[in-house]
Every structure is written in structure tokens, then in C-alpha cells.
Design a protein around this nucleic acid. Structure first.
Lengths: 188, 188
DNA sequence: GTAGTTTGCCTAAATATTTTAGGCAGCGTA
DNA sequence: TACGCTGCCTAAAATATTTAGGCAAACTAC
């Protein structure tokens, strides 16, 4: 009985890869066991349940995204920062669709509080420092920013834009231009 | 053997109700069979597969939304129309979270083409008639509108906004104000 | 009203996933 | 080398998906 060397870490990472290749909903304990050529029950020493596994993949994705965001935003401000922020999400979703889908998993409050999700919000607020908005417009702007980016990325991923004429890169640029203009010129 | 009177129609509608009550991912053939007090295999005379059932629920939700949109937009223009449009989605997601989740299901191209999804896009384009945008800004604006609404609604549903200060109704209004301002003043 | 056809819902059965319980052997440690 | 820990195993129960084939209820026609 050769030991494969399973670890929670390795399982989660392999689960994330599987999600990217086959879709987040294809991430099951059985599929993962097959991938490691191991019996399903063996996973349960490293992961509490199938839901636990999915949650850990979500946390990994949130962590990776936060890392990328921090890197992309360092030294940038204004529209430069805005573009970098938005592109981190879009590029990540393109390269890691399964991980991105995992990041949308609804977490229970305690888990969410301990996740990297808070850093995402911090990052969005940091960008808006380059614009001149006081509360409560500030919060509205943060939420608008998050909504546009998440909404666009998920509609694009879901094929919602496939039929109309201009390519999505073109409209994406224009939308970022428009967002920048809006933030510089927020209505009273 | 009393006949219950199953129909594809009744199954889909009950599935949609179940989705609203328990979540779209709880919609399974077995759960639905329990609800009708019928053996699982009996459903397969009315529905090709579990996936077929989910697809039909998605189509129902898209249809209902298109209906609501048409009603809400009739006789409105400009910001009035914009607000009505956005609120249809938000209110629908609030009242029918399972149906709204179903509407996000990725459909294969032919199914999507035959769905009410096209009418959604038409509706969005109709709203922008009240503003003055030429291609390719027009398409960008349509996609921005869809992204904001879908993004905001799904982040709000997912609890992404629960911790910050202003209530979501407040920021929602401000975001619609900002969107209106942006559309009236789209950057060159 | 009865005979014949359709079909709705059934039983039976194969396959897949999730999860728990308990056992054996490999690995590090004393 | 002997001990203990624990990684991966077998076994088994519960639930979900799907197909095949059967019986009886409901519609159609005379």
C-alpha cells in the first residue's frame, strides 16, 4: 500500500485545478480521489466533507485574488489603479474560471470574516482614495465598482455577451473609461 | 394507483417554487418527487433529465423576468425607465432567489437563442434610446447596465454587502443616480 | 357501455456520490 | 527493534440519477 502523501493543502490545490479544468460543480470527493488514484474514503482524513473541500477552494481563490490585487495596485493610483484592479478579476476569471466560480461560493459569516474577502474590500476603497468622494457616496462607489467588475466578468464568462457586435475587450475598455469619468465627476 | 396528474409544466413550476424555498441547488428529481408524493422514476416521463428540469426552470425565470420588464418599461423613459428596469431584477431576486439563481444557469447556444434572454437585451437597448449614445458606446452602455444590475443583485444576495455601513437601499438609489448621470454624460 | 389504445405512474435494477466505522501497515521515534 | 501514530484501506448505509419494462387508469371509438 504505497502512500500517496495526501494533504489538505494538496487536495485543495488539486480541487482548484480540477475546478478550472472541468468546472467548479464537477469538484467532488470522488473525482478528486480518482485524480489521486486513491479510495474516496481516504480523503475524509484531510477534509471534513465535500462542502468543507469547496469552502477551502473558495478561500484559496479569495486569497490568490487578494494577493494579485495587492501586487497590481502597488504604486498605482487613479485610473491606472482602477484599470489594474478590474483587470485582475477579469484575467483571473479567464485563466481560472473554476477558481473564480469558487470565490463566489456563499460562505457562512464566521468563515467569510476570516477570509481574504475583507482585503478585497480594502483594496476597492484604496482605489477610491484617488478620487474625491465622501460618505455615503464613497460606499456607493465601492459597491458600484465591485458590481460592475463582478457583473461584467460573470456575464462574459457565462456567454451573455457572445452575440452582439463589438468584442468584449473593446467594450471593457470603454466601460473602464466611463467608470473613471463617473468617479471623477460623481453627481451631487 | 391514484394518478396525481403530473405535467412538465407543473413539475417546472413546483421546481421553481422549491428553488425559491430551499435554493436552486436543492432542486433535484428526488426532492421534487417527494413533493408530489410520487416515485422518482415517474418524473422521467415528463422531463428528460435532471439537467433538463433545471434548464426549464431557468427558461421559466427568464420568461417571467422578461414579462415583468416589459410591464415595468411600458410608458417610461429616461431615468424613470432605468430605475424601473433595475428594480425589476432586484425585486425579482429578492422575492424569488431560487428562480433568479436559475436564470443564471449557463444554457447551450440553441437553448439560449430560443429563450427570453434576447428580450432582456432588447429591453436594455430600449432604455438607452432615452439617452444619446452611438455605437460602439451604445453596446458598452448596454453591457455596463447589465453588469451593474446583475453584479449588484448577486453581491447583495450573496451577503457581500452586509457589513458596511449604509443600507443597501440607500446605495442602490445612489448608484442608479450615478448611472443616469453617466449615461447622460458619457465620456468621449 | 364495452373494447382497444394510450400513457401515467409503478417496481426493479444499475451506477454514482457522500459519509461513517473500523482495520492494517508504513513511518518516525524512543 | 519495538511502539505508536496516522495514512490509506475495506465495508457498508444513505441518497440521487437514470433506464427498462409492467399494470392499470383514462381517453377514443364503435
Amino acid at each position: 500500500m504505497a502512500r500517496v502523501g495526501l494533504t489538505t493543502e494538496r487536495l485543495v490545490r488539486a480541487g482548484a485545478d480540477l475546478a478550472d479544468e472541468a468546472g467548479f460543480d464537477q469538484v467532488t470527493a470522488s473525482a478528486l480521489a480518482r485524480r489521486f488514484d486513491v479510495k474516496v474514503a481516504s480523503l475524509y482524513s484531510h477534509v471534513k466533507s465535500s462542502h468543507d473541500l469547496k469552502t477551502r477552494i473558495a478561500l484559496l481563490a479569495l486569497e490568490e485574488l487578494a494577493e494579485l490585487l495587492a501586487g497590481a495596485l502597488a504604486g498605482r493610483a487613479g485610473k491606472d489603479a482602477l484599470t489594474a484592479y478590474a483587470n485582475v478579476y477579469r484575467d483571473y476569471a479567464q485563466e481560472h474560471p473554476g477558481r473564480y466560480a469558487a470565490a463566489q461560493l456563499r460562505l457562512d459569516p464566521e468563515t467569510a470574516a476570516a477570509s481574504a474577502g475583507g482585503r478585497h474590500a480594502d483594496m476597492a476603497r484604496a482605489i477610491l482614495r484617488g478620487y474625491d468622494l465622501a460618505e455615503p457616496d464613497h460606499t456607493a462607489a465601492v459597491r458600484l465598482l465591485g458590481s460592475v467588475v463582478h457583473g461584467y466578468v460573470s456575464l462574459e464568462m457565462g456567454g451573455g455577451f457572445s452575440h452582439s457586435a463589438p468584442d468584449t475587450q473593446e467594450t471593457w475598455s470603454r466601460i473602464l473609461d466611463a467608470l473613471d469619468a463617473l468617479l471623477r465627476n460623481w453627481p451631487a
